[in-house]
C-alpha cells in the first residue's frame, strides 16, 4: 500500500466520473438505464412473455373460431395446475370440440410457457401484457374464456415472427389435409363394393 487514502480517492474518481457523465449525452445512454414508468415504457423484445391467451381466427366471432378443442393436454401438463377446462356439450350431452369453461388463475400461473409447448393445435400462446393488477386477490385474478380469447391478428401484432411461422405451418397442414382428403375419398368409393 502506498499513500494512505489513494484507493479511496481512486474510488471517488469513479463515482465522480459516473455522476458527471450522466449529465452528458454520450454517457447518459450508458449510465442511466432506468425508465420513468408509467410515462415511459420499456420496449419489449418479441420473445417476451407474461400470461397465456387463447387464439381465435376471427375477431368478430371469437367463440366460434377459437382453435382450442378442449383436449385438456395443457391442463394436465401445467406444472402449477392453474388451468381449468370443462368441455362443452350440446343438449343431448354429446361432447363438442370446444371448451365451455376455460379458466386460468393468473395468481398461480408462473409464466413458464409449457402449455404453449405441449398444445398440438397452436391454440394457446403467450401474451406480453403485464399490466394485470387488480383490486382483489381471488376472483379478480381468474381469467375466464371471454377475457382469454384474443384474435390471431393481435397475435401477429405482438409477435410477428413467431405468428407468421405458426400461420405458415397451419396453412401447410391444411393444404396437406385437403390433398389427402381427395385421394382418400376416391379410395373409399370402391371399397364397400369389394367387401
Amino acid at each position: 500500500m502506498g499513500l494512505l487514502g489513494k484507493g479511496l480517492f481512486a474510488g471517488m474518481a469513479v463515482t465522480a466520473r459516473n455522476f458527471i457523465g450522466s449529465y452528458f449525452d454520450g454517457g447518459r445512454k450508458e449510465r442511466l438505464f432506468t425508465y420513468q414508468y408509467p410515462e415511459e415504457k420499456m420496449p419489449l423484445p418479441e420473445n417476451s412473455r407474461t400470461f397465456p391467451f387463447l387464439v381465435c381466427d376471427d375477431e368478430q366471432d371469437p367463440v366460434g373460431t377459437m382453435r382450442c378443442v378442449a383436449c385438456k393436454i395443457c391442463e394436465t401438463e401445467c406444472p402449477p395446475q392453474c388451468i381449468y377446462i370443462v368441455m362443452d356439450r350440446d343438449e343431448k350431452g354429446k361432447p363438442q370440440q370446444r371448451p365451455k369453461v376455460f379458466d386460468i388463475d393468473i395468481s398461480v400461473c408462473m409464466q413458464c410457457q409449457i402449455c404453449v409447448e405441449v398444445c398440438p393445435f397452436d391454440a394457446i400462446k403467450m401474451d406480453c401484457d403485464y399490466e394485470k393488477s387488480q383490486h382483489g386477490r381471488f376472483d379478480e385474478l381468474v381469467e375466464h374464456l371471454p377475457d382469454l380469447l384474443k384474435s390471431n391478428a393481435y397475435y401477429n401484432r405482438i409477435k410477428p415472427t413467431e405468428a407468421s411461422a405458426v400461420d405458415a405451418r397451419l396453412k401447410a397442414a391444411q393444404e396437406k389435409k385437403a390433398k389427402k382428403a381427395v385421394p382418400a375419398a376416391k379410395a373409399e368409393g370402391p371399397a364397400p363394393a369389394a367387401s
Binding site: Q81, C82, Y84, D103, D105, F138, D139, L141, V142
Partner: peptide, 23 residues
C-alpha cells in the same frame, strides 16, 4: 383457497366443509 381447482385438489376442497372453489 384455489379458484381453478381440479382433480385431486377439487376433491379435497369438497371434502372440507364450507370451502368450495368457484369453478
Amino acid at each position: 383457497w384455489e379458484p381453478t381447482a381440479h382433480d385431486e385438489t377439487l376433491a379435497r376442497a369438497r371434502a372440507q366443509e364450507g370451502i368450495v372453489p368457484p369453478s
